[in-house]
Design a protein around this nucleic acid. Structure first.
Lengths: 215, 215
DNA sequence: ACCTGAACACCGTTCAAGT
DNA sequence: ACCTGAACACCGTTCAAGT
């Protein structure tokens, strides 16, 4: 019809669907009807659905260009990298689901971030094997932190679902699950987003710094 | 036929399929034929597929009974809890995939572990909100660590897939991804399982202890 | 190069019916 | 209580064919 069908455009529409209706709603056939095209048309641009999701992931992280090397210490640069990645992922609610379904090694824009993290880990004095572990761990944590329960989210039935979960926790036997019952509110409500982020990043980086200082 | 069909037995068979052929192979229809029964028979024992996966998760973690309170300091007890959970999850290769697809709050055996972690976090001096964040983070990390690339895994084509991934990384432009190219081997091969575990747990607990000491 | 039509082999789930 | 039969509304993907 109007705009030409392109791999880029397909990925963008897929992300819109995934963000608003969940990744399960991103279906080849649904996507095709949305784009005013036959399902098989998508197979010209992506080999299969897995590659489509890789395309979504690449478009997702593509918005984040790690800053060039500067003169700050590795701790500060690692923190900046982590916070930047979190901010980028936070834009798309379905980011975590997308990244879970594929091998990150297949996503070019992810490789750029990973390479930078590896360099900083080496700079911190970690060996090759340790740097691999640390960066995998760091990136995975960033993805998890980005997936925070957004406080004032868009979904209309969210308040009701949260209430149900809280009631569910509160009605547990107090003797077996004393802390869950007591903290049911904060557990399901989520916390102040700002606290959530800084606290999460602090936790990861503190761990890395502690290990770095131990050698 | 022989044994009676039971929710427990269904979950066990589902875990077997998931462990050997991947969670995608766990399908209502496939599971039914495996059990010598009609697909709709499963709907009497589980409301829908989501509840089936919850059943798998519960059976998974059910094997792990957190130890009762003793007199060790909270650091040691939190470490024991984490390592125990990791050992339990490691038994089932599909554990991570299973836990990703559902809300952990719906899994009774998971709640027991979570409650214990919450108690230890409070004991460490963290407030309510912080304890919620810390335990979510800790349990999530344990799940990720348990999902380690098992070194001498069962899959026969694993060696070939790993080789392909390494070649893929090594053929990247050296100027843009210097560290990925250099560390391609260790990155895809995975490391010594023992190192992987202790290092991962050390990292998480170091972070938590650092934050605890900061107040 | 880019897209369509028809077909295949699957899904999860409902609903009425059997024992 | 526990399971079956038939049907519905979906999937991803292939393969030949169109322009």
């Amino acid at each position: 019809m109007m705009g030409k069908l392109t791999a880029q455009g397909i990925a963008e529409r897929a992300l819109e669907i995934g963000d608003t209706e969940g990744l399960d709603a991103v279906t080849i056939r649904r996507l095709a009807t949305d784009l005013g095209v036959t399902p098989m048309a998508l197979y010209w641009h992506y080999k299969n659905k897995e590659q489509l999701i890789v395309g979504m992931a690449d478009h997702l992280i593509g918005g984040f260009a790690p800053e060039p090397a500067d003169e700050r210490p590795w701790q500060a640069r690692l923190r900046a990298l982590t916070e930047g990645l979190i901010r980028t992922l936070r834009v798309h609610p379905c980011a975590k689901d997308v990244l879970e379904q594929i091998d990150p090694v297949a996503v070019p824009s992810f490789l750029a971030v990973w390479d930078q993290a590896l360099g900083l880990a080496r700079q911190a004095g970690f060996g090759v094997e340790e740097s691999c572990l640390i960066t995998k761990y760091l990136l995975q944590s960033a993805i998890a932190i980005a997936d925070a329960p957004v406080h004032g989210a868009a979904e209309p039935d969210r308040a009701e679902r949260v209430r149900l979960k809280r009631v569910g926790l509160q009605s547990l036997p107090t003797d077996r699950y004393p802390h869950l019952v007591e903290m049911a509110g904060p557990l399901v409500e989520g916390t102040d987003p700002a606290l959530y982020d800084t606290f999460g990043v602090d936790l990861v980086l503190s761990g890395i710094e502690a290990l770095a200082a131990r050698r």
